[in-house]
Nucleic acid binder design. Structure first.
Lengths: 207, 207
DNA sequence: CATTCCGCTCAACAGGCGTTGACTCAACGA
DNA sequence: TCGTTGAGTCAACGCCTGTTGAGCGGAATG
């Protein structure tokens, strides 16, 4: 029955982790302003002063909590880009990491979160634009990103009834043509011609 | 140059209007939590206590400030619906009313704003669904609404560089095929080929 | 005129916030 | 075994917040 006490370093690591987890949850649930140091400390079963001691300030705690490792992947053609986006959706619909939810929840009201959001979205737009053909690739990539943002906000944060209990494959199925319309180089031209999803572009591969 | 003093009723009306305008601006700029009664009062050049006296509480001030008159219009076919949405975009891109921006800015962090947002979006989804053909009209209408929400958030609130200085007609032009893909009854089907797992339960969606 | 009404201000309250410095005590290194 | 280190607590500070009640002064009313 003898419980050997944890080594100090390990104990510290665990406590810090607990605080970070609690912070992520709280930030994701109520956003930056409504989440309090005391609330995080209570959830982590720790004294508020310890949170300060470890992270310095609420602002730094937030930055540590929402820090996200950028995805390195990169599809080469428009088709792959759309599927990658929809795949992101699948992940998003299930259990989008708390850190991302925390950032999204706060991005409209907390300036620092807005900066983070612009960086993350900008990065995604970069990757999308690189794989999107056409002259206005960057604008189209931004719109695709915002489409996903809107759906995620509506589903995960606003929790609209219309999306509750809808399987992600269904959402992906409905979104796919819309995203293709934004990704394809014929976007903005009137329909009546089938782009053909088989092998994609034969020319026009500018970066 | 004799300045006749304003009648009491008129004076009251103007002051109340000034407070409401200031509240709308501040809520739209920084959201519910960061906007303070004192801040609103300062912007309206009025004592904070007067704001309380006129509106009772910060919460009621917010509700009065974001109260929006629902649009009565209603297009009958999918084409018209898309154009109506894009028209909304044109308005949005220019000078979306401060009240709407205030609601959007706060909807992710302020519970009451979230309720308002769900009501407004739900209303729009209703109107869209009524004019959208197909079984899953309501879901598709929700996605169309969220597409617009995402674009508006990215442009008006996040102020992404990629959308800055882009004329609204350009955005509408790029968005049109995407929205049509969501509105059309053939949405979600693969042109020329059937993936096989597509149409599972497309009957009996409630309305 | 006198009196009531009311738009408006002033000063203050209570409570919650982020943050701090002094403190306790168990794990550590010599 | 000792002093040192550092994880964790405690009580408090100053500030800002929403909110309140008393009060001032000019318009309304007779």
């Amino acid at each position: 029955m003898s419980e050997r006490p944890l080594p100090r370093a390990e104990r510290r690591r665990r406590t810090e982790g607990r605080i970070l987890d609690a912070a992520r949850s709280l930030f994701a649930e109520v956003g930056y302003e409504r989440a309090t140091i005391r609330g995080v400390a209570r959830a982590a079963e720790v004294d508020p002063a310890l949170v300060m001691q470890y992270f310095g300030s609420k602002q730094e705690l937030f930055q540590r909590a929402v820090r996200v490792t950028p995805v390195a992947a990169g599809e080469r053609d428009a088709e792959g880009v759309v599927e990658e986006l929809l795949g992101t959706l699948s992940v998003k619909m299930g259990e989008l990491p708390q850190s991302s939810l925390a950032m999204m929840r706060s991005m409209l009201t907390h300036p620092e979160a807005a900066v983070s959001a612009r960086e993350v979205l900008g990065g995604q737009i970069d990757r999308l634009a690189a794989a999107t053909p056409g002259a206005d690739a960057r604008l189209r990539a931004a719109l695709m990103t915002l489409v996903m943002l809107g759906v995620t906000v509506g589903h995960q944060l606003l929790e609209l009834d219309e999306l509750r209990d809808v399987p992600r494959e269904e959402i992906a199925r409905l979104l796919r043509p819309a995203l293709r319309a934004l990704a394809g180089q014929d976007a903005g031209q009137d329909p009546g011609q089938d782009p053909g999803q088989g092998s994609g572009q034969d020319a026009g591969q500018d970066g």
